[in-house]
Design a protein around this nucleic acid. Structure first.
Lengths: 222, 222
DNA sequence: CCTCTGAGTGTACGGCGTACACCATCTGGC
DNA sequence: GCCAGATGGTGTACGCCGTACACTCAGAGG
């Protein structure tokens, strides 16, 4: 009524994907339900299905948005710093979208965007002098690290205050002595009793370099 | 009516967990819904809640069943074969329960059973002469491999016939040349054109040994 | 005997993804 | 200028999920 050009931006896959990603970024992946996305767009849930086949395809699309944020390979570098930089760029993208790694784990088929990423990753190894075979094993060995994340088994993300956490650990002292010992050592390392837990970035790079160094040694040996 | 001792086995956490695991083993994790477990037990869904707090606790319990199947450490071995054997035992347990790795990924807090497993794993590194620090990094680096699985990003498990898969790959030949090249090489290795895909067990052990060898080198260096 | 407890029941709610029939608007061919 | 068809948004409804809450009913202890 107000006017014929009543800012009625029409729906589109891009708009849907964008709001889905935004919702997931702020509210976790369960905030990106069809119903909530539709509500956010001021539209009825079924309207989405005119632009997206189903929830699975939508999740794939959301992942593509994230993967598209990964920097392209920097030219002119040796294979190792090149792969390293790319993986760390992927990690940065995933840190921006904390839901993405869990969703990626749940996917069963890679999208074209992901395939393209993998393809270029393989090419980087090959250009660095890796045999086809070793490249193959390298890709498997890297596993999800290729995509910039590690399993973070039980990444508690505990919202409990850190001293409560410390208390919990001391309570476990005699049930799990080795874990407790490890906890103590980690806490003392940075001079505070309760400590900030683990430095995820350091641990990621540690494992990444462990793999890359090992692979380099195998390459040179052959 | 038939009799007072009408084989009415009473419910119990163990019985619930056992049927839940059995259902998941045969029908995937979504076959282990509260309603289906209850039906399998000839009972109404809400009856389960008298023995299990909620779905999350049930999933934890199911994982504990799997973790309990992991062999204890073999005494008298060097740290490396010992860790190796244990991880491979974990892998065997997870292969028996294909749903378990995905469920484990989704868990946010470890159960006591899992903590005990981690604790003994840490102890194995320590006994092998690893510093507390290096043990810490080692545990992070191993990630989910500690529990016997790798990310298997996009483990297609494609039920398509293998020649259809081959056809798919050739169709991708110019879009993803490096993937195609890799696919060709893997296929030829075992003498068949379509090949059985990758040898998951080999890839797992390859990556595991890569880590363990790298860690050993770091230990000896320090 | 009578009451209390605890296991199993029934009903119901709010969430999810989505099938299907419907309607409104805009477009191209006559 | 009109009418047919496509295209995009709507409304209703179904079957699944986990689970809150009020109940029944059998067995145990005083």
């Amino acid at each position: 009524m107000k006017s014929t050009t009543e800012t009625r931006v029409p729906l589109s896959p891009e708009r849907i994907l964008a709001t889905a990603v935004a919702l997931a970024d702020t509210g976790g992946v369960e905030a990106a339900s069809m119903r909530k996305i539709a509500q956010e767009l001021g539209v009825v849930p079924m309207a989405l299905y005119k632009h997206v086949a189903n929830k699975d395809e939508l999740l794939d699309g959301m992942l593509d948005v994230v993967v598209a944020e990964i920097d392209p390979p920097e030219p002119g570098l040796e294979w190792k710093p090149s792969v390293r930089a790319r993986v760390l760029s992927a990690r940065r993208a995933l840190l921006r979208h904390p839901w993405a790694s869990r969703v990626m784990e749940s996917r069963t088929q890679p999208t074209p965007t992901v395939l393209a990423y993998m393809d270029s990753m393989i090419a980087m190894f090959r250009a660095g002098g890796f045999s086809m075979d070793l490249t193959h094993h390298a890709m498997h060995a890297m596993g999800s690290r290729i995509m910039g994340f590690t399993q973070e088994l039980f990444n508690d993300n505990t919202d409990a205050p850190p001293d409560a956490e410390a208390e919990m650990y001391t309570a476990m002292a005699d049930a799990y002595p080795s874990i407790y010992e490890l906890f103590l050592s980690v806490s003392h390392d940075d001079g505070s009793v309760v400590g900030p837990g683990c430095d995820d970035q350091f641990e990621f790079e540690f494992a990444l370099d462990l793999m890359l160094d090992g692979l380099e040694a195998m390459k040179d040996r052959s």
